[in-house]
Design a protein around this nucleic acid. Sequence first.
DNA 1: ATCCCGAGGG
DNA 2: CCCTCTGGAT
Length: 215
Amino acid sequence: MITTDEILDQLEIMFPDAHCELIHKNPFELLVAVVLSAQTTDNAVNKVTPALFESFPDPKTMANADIKDIEDKIKRIGLYRNKARSIQNLSKSLLTSFDGNVPQSMKDLTSLAGVGRKTANVVRSVCFDIPSIAVDTHVERISKRLGLAKVYDSVEVVEQKLKRKIKRERWNKAHHLFIFFGRYFCTARNPQCNNCPFQNICKKEKLEKYKNQNK
DNA sequence: ATCCCGAGGG
DNA sequence: CCCTCTGGAT
């Protein structure tokens, strides 16, 4: 039976430069980019953020902007009304509660508009190098296909199981390895099962059977 | 459980 | 056409 460490070793070989692909120059920009990335490809986010940050480079300008100007800048990605409201309100909170800085604690981060546990984990990991496992659509799917979590586990349970099975010093890298594997190889539709090194342990069929039952 | 919500791929 | 994209708030 393959160990979790061996899975990660294999993924390191396949994706030696797995990293955060959201363009950002500072914690504020990453925070906003991650909020924008909900249910949206990071490629799409990277197309709108340069112009967005040129107009609104910091919490103060973002907080004082006309909401419609923010909406126009991000219209091409989905859920743009909610996201515009979130990043403006989040910017206001950064000014009033955190002296204009992005906080580091889970509690403070998730107090911000549009910031849930997944977004907070990404910011903590990438900006502050705090060991974290952010469970998004890719990490959830990969974890279940590789049998690291049960098909019926919630994202919270998936996070707990990954943290238990993966050495703490590998958490941050493991997250991006799963993202790259899920984004470029073990995709939701038409994954490259033919040349996959994990065929013998894959729970893909089981996961799909479970999902079909519950709809 | 539902809504938000455009763009790109198959 | 249908599915998916680094979810969160109600």
